[in-house]
């Protein structure tokens, strides 16, 4: 574990504990779309790349914690709908856990945070018969599941267009501490806010 990762993880855990101590201000659930590596992945033999927006449905849930005046913090989890690659034997799933500090300004919320992003790839095994030089060969397929775990840095903006409904755009930046393997993914989502479900007297969000 390098220094950057240690600092981020410690901050997340301390932040988490501190937040829970101050109490929940709001809880929410939402749906949205997760776009992974926009414009960075080749999609045909002519060099075209994936679009800057791709519809990968995901669900999210989280809580907001009051810190001080217009400042608050968020803890959130998101799960991208598992999908198959081109081969139905391969299943890929993304999920992430985020912690953000936020500044509330009128109907807007500006967020900066960090979290862990997971990519799970699994396969049932078997072989694929593929071209190989001047003949064909049976290439083995993976027969297990693997989870890749990345620390990510997040930057987002959320707009409340109703007391209980908001829309959010949030970027997930991978490997901020490194000059290699940097990547950006982002989410677009709509959330419904339940307020403080632990305290009915503060049932609704105060946005």
């Amino acid at each position: 574990m390098n220094f950057f990762n240690a600092v981020v993880l410690s901050a997340i855990l301390l932040f988490s504990t501190a937040l829970h101590a101050v109490g929940v201000k709001d809880t929410y659930l939402g749906i949205g779309s997760y776009t992974s590596l926009p414009g960075k992945v080749q999609t045909n033999d002519s060099g075209d790349t994936n679009g800057i927006f791709e519809l990968e449905p995901y669900i999210l849930g989280g809580a907001e914690f009051q810190i001080y005046k217009d400042w608050s913090a968020f803890a959130e989890a998101g799960f991208v709908k598992p999908g198959s690659g081109r081969d139905p034997k391969i299943t890929k799933m993304n999920y992430f856990f985020l912690f953000s500090g936020a500044y509330n300004f009128m109907d807007w919320v500006f967020k900066l945070g960090a979290g862990l992003s997971y990519t799970r790839i699994s396969s049932e095994g078997g072989v694929q018969t593929l071209n190989n030089g001047t003949t064909t060969t049976d290439f083995p397929m993976p027969d297990a599941a693997v989870v890749s775990q990345n620390i990510i840095t997040t930057l987002g903006v959320e707009y409340y267009f109703h007391q209980e409904i908001s829309a959010k755009l949030e970027g997930h930046y991978f490997n901020l501490e490194s000059s290699e393997g940097n990547a950006l993914s982002y989410t677009l989502s709509v959330s419904y806010h339940f307020g403080n479900i632990f305290d009915p007297s503060q049932r609704k969000s105060k946005k």
Partner: peptide, 13 residues
């Protein structure tokens, strides 16, 4: 091999 003429998920070798 890599052949110079004209091939679903990734595979292993």
């Amino acid at each position: 091999f890599l052949h110079v003429s004209s091939s679903f998920a990734f595979s292993l070798n």
